[in-house]
Amino acid sequence: MLVINCPFCGPRDEREFDYGGLAKAPRSKVERVASNSEWTAYLLHPGDQGRIADEYWWHARGCGEWVRVRRDTTTHRIEQSEVESDR
């Protein structure tokens, strides 16, 4: 189980969070400037999924804020977590 450090509540059990997918550029910044193929790619592809992934977690059963977490997908080690203001 992950222990996610919520910037507002401190280290909390993963069960308090809902997974929000891989982090990517906010939709509002892409939808007006993207070409057709860029827009298709934006909708189809999750964010970058290397070994280290940036992802959103929603502290749904806590303060209700979105947190951006950087995690190693081979070990589950969390390298960084910060407030996500774009969501």
Binding site: L2, A53, T73, T75
Partner: peptide, 13 residues
């Protein structure tokens, strides 16, 4: 399990 994973196990919860 929620979130990408290349581990070959599952989380306890």
């Amino acid at each position: 399990d929620a979130g990408l994973s290349y581990r070959r196990d599952i989380k306890q919860h």
